[in-house]
Amino acid sequence: MTQDTRPLIQPDLRRARGAGRNMTGRFEALERVEPGTGWEGDGWDIPEPQKGWRTEVAVERPRSAITRNASPDVPFDRSLNPYRGCEHGCIYCFARPSHSYLGLSPGLDFETRLVARPDIWRVLERELRRPSYRVAPLAIGTSTDPYQPIEARFKAMRKVLEVLRDFHHPVGIVTKGTMVARDLDILAPMAAAGLAHVGVTVTTLDADLSRRMEPRVPLPARRLALIRQLAGAGVPVRVMVSPVVPGLTDHEIEPILDAAKQAGARAASWIMLRLPHEVAPLMTDWLWEHAPGRAEKVLRRLREMHGGKGYDARFGHRMRGEGVHARMIARRFEVATRRLGLDGGLPPLDCGQFRVPLGTQDQPSLF
């Protein structure tokens, strides 16, 4: 986790963005660089061309909706992603490297060159109608956030929820976006039937740190208000203290859990900061730019937790780490959740109600 010595993109050109650069993805044969004017170093006072990083959205028509996994680290075997990339711009996001598969950068491209899948609900409906389909809880938001800002325009997540409601299919949602409250007319009845849970991520209670670390995410106070709103509507809510950044946010574990409990959360979980692939240099850049007094401490703690490396991707290890500090954080979380009654988990989702409706959203049944 050495710092890239090349200069970062000018801050005024990446306002409200998390990444400081737009490095080439790891699968590309050629490296991309931002072009200059050609006059640099010749004594001419000619400004560089100004380029803002605006959000661009491409539309994809996927061939499949449900992604399967066999990871022992997560409690689900299937997930769905309405969007690729995420405008929230969280610098620590472990999904950033997935943009390399699109030939795009895990840096600023991940936050600004997004892919929407507005018709994914049609594909999901076809997959749920297959005679071979066997129901199990569907996880949404485990990679990129389904309630990121462009959901207001595309409404891909809402259409997916309508399909799941019609099939009485259980769903677990993870989000930082307060737009999930828009869909309470669907989620509240599903939750009452044991078909829906929501996890709300709260990384820090410090509004200034949040704005710098996760620039387009609703502020922590708004997410706590969201927990209160969801819980008041009868939706079981888990607060997700994720990621815990050792040396930067780990002191906030207990305050976050206390605040979430007061807001109505019924369970809690946590994950240690993960730095796979390109996330490592991006996070290192961010630390030296935004928290230089803590940067070396954070990076040293991570190396201690991963056997001298910045990250170890082994199952059973990658989300927790090991060593004295990892055990101390785990123990603090355990004690705090037991004290607050957040250690029992959410009620299980009901898979027994699943049924294939007679009609479709395009052609409803007359009966």
Results as ranks from 00 to 15, higher is better:
I66E: 08
E48T: 02
P35E: 11
T37H: 11
E60L: 02
L30H: 06
R61N: 09
P49G: 11
W39F: 14
W44K: 15
A65Q: 03
T37G: 06
E31P: 01
I46W: 15
E31R: 14
E48Q: 13
W44A: 15
R54H: 09
V59T: 12
P49T: 12
A29Y: 02
Q50D: 10
R61C: 03
D42L: 11
P35L: 13
G36F: 06
I46Y: 14
G36I: 05
R61L: 01
E31K: 12
R54T: 03
E60C: 03
E60R: 10
R63H: 02
E40F: 02
E48S: 12
P62H: 01
R63K: 04
V57L: 03
R32A: 10
E60T: 04
G41W: 04
V57T: 01
D42K: 09
E34G: 06
E56V: 03
W39E: 12
W53F: 13
P35I: 09
S64E: 08
P62L: 00
R54L: 09
S64Q: 09
A58R: 14
V57N: 01
E56T: 06
E34L: 08
G52Q: 14
D45P: 00
L30S: 06
A58C: 05
T55R: 12
P35A: 12
T55I: 05
G43V: 02
T67D: 09
E40A: 10
P49D: 13
A65L: 03
P47V: 02
D45M: 02
A58N: 07
W53P: 00
G38V: 01
W39G: 05
V33E: 02
G43I: 01
R54A: 11
E40D: 15
D45R: 04
R63Y: 00
R32D: 06
V59C: 03
P62F: 00
E56G: 08
E56P: 04
L30G: 02
R61V: 04
E31N: 07
I46Q: 14
A58T: 11
G38E: 12
I66G: 04
A58Y: 05
P35Q: 12
T37S: 15
R63L: 03
A29Q: 10
Q50G: 06
E60D: 05
R54W: 10
P47G: 04
W53S: 06
T67I: 05
Q50V: 14
L30A: 07
R32N: 08
K51S: 09
W44H: 15
P49K: 11
W39A: 15
G36V: 07
V57E: 04
G43E: 14
E48R: 15
R63D: 08
G36D: 14
A58S: 10
V57M: 04
I66D: 06
L30W: 05
